[in-house]
């Protein structure tokens, strides 16, 4: 999609979410004004914009699906949109990457992909504002959007942080998709895996690393193996 000739029409929506990822869009500040020179927001409840439109060039959706109405809303938006972005971990994984309520979740939450086709994902809980900005520009300009598949760990090493595993902490950095500049380890906290599994995540190796250091292995780690195999499957299907 190259949309430079006319300003692409963009809608920003939220389903069940905390709106933190939309706040991260507001947090772009000046950069947001630059973005508004390139795109036209035609629908956003949070911004109070509701223009008439037949279709959207780009739908940006935050949040997961928790009710029949939200499902209908999502399908309706998908039908009217050329490109759809899942914004933040709620939209990407129904916040399961972050919440880890993988096994016995008392609530039934669905990610966007479980209901409609998703063209791009912006991971994280919350998203990284700059990554959002770059990706939207790339999409709008018709450039190839490159998903970083490096891990949080590889970024952490670049920053020369002391490794938290050596301090006995449960860091998921080795199996988590990078792109956040190893935000948590750089602030003295173990990675919680909010950006989801990296493509080549080796969960068993991490479990072993925990065991070797006497770090209690969190229960959800083996459940993550399940998520990984689902993800691998999905990717294979997409590439076929």
């Amino acid at each position: 999609m190259s949309l430079i000739d006319s300003k692409p029409k963009v809608g920003i929506f939220n389903l069940s979410s905390c709106e933190g990822c939309i706040v991260q869009i507001l947090n772009l500040g000046d950069k947001l004004l630059r973005l508004f020179e390139l795109i036209e927001i035609v629908d956003s409840r949070v911004l109070g914009i509701k223009k008439d439109y037949d279709y959207l060039d780009l739908a940006i959706i935050e949040g997961c699906v928790m009710s029949e109405e939200e499902k209908e809303k999502l399908v309706e938006i998908r039908n009217r949109s050329k490109v759809l972005i899942a914004l933040g971990d709620c939209a990407v994984s129904a916040n399961k990457n972050f919440m880890k309520d993988i096994v016995n979740s008392p609530v039934e939450a669905k990610s966007l992909r479980q209901i409609v086709k998703v063209d791009y994902e912006i991971p994280g809980c919350p998203i990284n504002s700059d990554e959002f900005y770059d990706k939207v520009i790339e999409i709008v300009m018709g450039k190839k959007v490159i998903d970083r598949s490096i891990t949080v760990c590889s970024e952490c090493i670049l920053f020369e942080n002391d490794c938290l595993l050596d301090k006995g902490l449960t860091c998921l950095g080795p199996i988590t998709r990078g792109g956040c500049n190893a935000l948590c380890p750089s602030n003295g906290r173990p990675c919680f895996g909010c950006r989801g599994l990296s493509d080549d995540a080796n969960i068993d190796a991490l479990i072993k690393a925990f065991e070797e250091r006497g770090i209690p292995v969190p229960l959800y780690l083996s459940a993550l193996n399940l998520i990984k195999s689902l993800k691998d499957n999905e990717r294979r299907m997409r590439n076929e």
Partner: peptide, 26 residues
């Protein structure tokens, strides 16, 4: 929608519960 409920917090480690509670509102 009731995305997060008190029930989700129950059973989590105290520090995880704090992270989840923070996600009530962005």
């Amino acid at each position: 929608g009731t995305r997060i409920v008190e029930n989700v917090l129950v059973g989590n480690d105290y520090w995880e519960a704090i992270e989840i509670a923070s996600r009530m509102c962005g």
